[in-house]
Each structure stands twice: as structure tokens, then as C-alpha cells.
């Protein structure tokens, strides 16, 4: 089966109590599934688990497969699951272009080809000519778009969005949301989004999975 599939996934916190009732659902390529639930229930923890970033001490059960393969057996860097957080998290020591180049998949070889790929992505993000810019000088919206491009350039097989728009003001939020959704849909990969906001889920158009206490 293609896409991201969770089967009977549970997570126990280091304290020992399970965070939410066992979860089973799938995200098809091109689909954006929203994840909701009361705060503290473990939405971000689940995202970290799928991405391979769970801190030690959590006890997990169940399966996560991506395109039919067991994702949990692989280290984070080998899962090819892109993650976007509410902060852009551009690497502060690299220029905007270098940030994107850091993400660009190694399959694209040669200096010129890689540079061209990055420049093209910058242009798509409305950041043409920003290659050498210091990321700290970008506006919030610009940073978020650069971060998305960096993630997409890595050619992920799935994308996790961890409250990606929660820090933005409403106007920017809507604009960025449509920008992100347009791009991830174009990639036709499964997308799982954590969000508190009903508008986000509505715009995503996909199913909403609600986490409930165990």
C-alpha cells in the first residue's frame, strides 16, 4: 500500500502512561490529513515518532509504514520524511540559498545543476535573488517559504507539518497556507498536519483524525 500508514500506534511517556488511544489510519499520496486533539495529548510527540525524532524514554508500539516499508526501522535521516515546524528553523550560519542546497537531494549532481535547482526553488517561493541573503534578515513569511522549499528539495516521501502556521498573523496565515498546500499537493506525497485551527483543516480538505485520551 502506498502512502503513510499507522497501525495500532501507541506511545507511552517516560512516566509510563499511554498518551492516546491506539491509532490506526492512512494518508494517501497527495492527501493532507489533519491531526487534532486537546493540547498535551501528544500530537507533536506522534509527529516526532513518525519522523524518527522521539527522545529516549518513550515506549512505543504499533507499526508505521511508508510506501509499504517499515519506517520505524530506519534512522530519521533515512526515512525521507520532511518536517516543518511552526518556526522556519533556517540554519543561521548558512545563507538562504545554502540552506536550500543543504536540503537538496544528493541525486542532483554538479555545482551548476544544484545551483540551478536552488535558484528555481527560490523563484517559486518569490525569493529570487535571495541566494546570498542572511536568513535572519528575511520576514517571517519569507523564512517560512524558504523552509518549505528546503524541505521539498530533499524530495521527501512524506511531509509532517507540526502547527506550521500557528505563529503567523491571520492575513499571512491564509496566504502561506495556500502556498504550502499548493506545493505539497503538487508533489503528491502524503502529508500529515498537526493543527489547532479548524480553518487549517478545512483548507486542507482531507480527513481529520482526532486524538482521544487512552
Amino acid at each position: 500500500m502506498t502512502g503513510l500508514v499507522l497501525t495500532n500506534v501507541t506511545i507511552r511517556s517516560p512516566g509510563g502512561s499511554p498518551l492516546f488511544a491506539p491509532l490506526t489510519f492512512g494518508v494517501r499520496p497527495g492527501e493532507i490529513v489533519s491531526l487534532s486533539g486537546p493540547s498535551g495529548i501528544g500530537k507533536s510527540t506522534l509527529v516526532a515518532h513518525i519522523g524518527g525524532h522521539l527522545p529516549a524514554g518513550f515506549v512505543t508500539a504499533g507499526q508505521v509504514t511508508l510506501d509499504g516499508r517499515n519506517a520505524l526501522a530506519l534512522p530519521a535521516e533515512a526515512r525521507r520524511i520532511g518536517v516543518l515546524f511552526q518556526d522556519a528553523l533556517l540554519f543561521p550560519h548558512l545563507s538562504v540559498g545554502e540552506n536550500l542546497a543543504f536540503g537538496l537531494e544528493p541525486a542532483i549532481r554538479g555545482r551548476a545543476a544544484r545551483r540551478a535547482a536552488v535558484e528555481e526553488a527560490l523563484e517559486q517561493a518569490g525569493l529570487a535573488g535571495f541566494y546570498r541573503r542572511d536568513p535572519a534578515t528575511l520576514s517571517g513569511g519569507q523564512q517560512a517559504r524558504a523552509a518549505l522549499m528546503r524541505t521539498l528539495l530533499a524530495a521527501p516521501r512524506a511531509i509532517l507539518l507540526d502547527e506550521p502556521f500557528s505563529k503567523l498573523d491571520p492575513a499571512l496565515r491564509a496566504e502561506l497556507r495556500s502556498f504550502v498546500f499548493a506545493h505539497v499537493r503538487a508533489r503528491a506525497v502524503p502529508v500529515l498536519m498537526v493543527s489547532h485551527d479548524a480553518e487549517d483543516a478545512a483548507a486542507a480538505g482531507g480527513p481529520v483524525i482526532s486524538l482521544s485520551p487512552a
Partner: peptide, 22 residues
């Protein structure tokens, strides 16, 4: 910020590359 490390991992960077490059 540990999310910088996670971001780099999600972009496919292995542990040593994350250490030395990020």
C-alpha cells in the same frame, strides 16, 4: 534548538553531517 537537528535529519543529513555541518 533541537528542532534544528531534527530538521537537518528530516532533510536526510546523517548524524556526523548534522554535527559538523549544522
Amino acid at each position: 534548538d533541537r528542532r534544528l537537528d531534527r530538521t537537518a535529519a528530516s532533510l536526510g543529513a546523517g548524524p556526523w553531517r548534522r554535527l559538523f555541518r549544522v
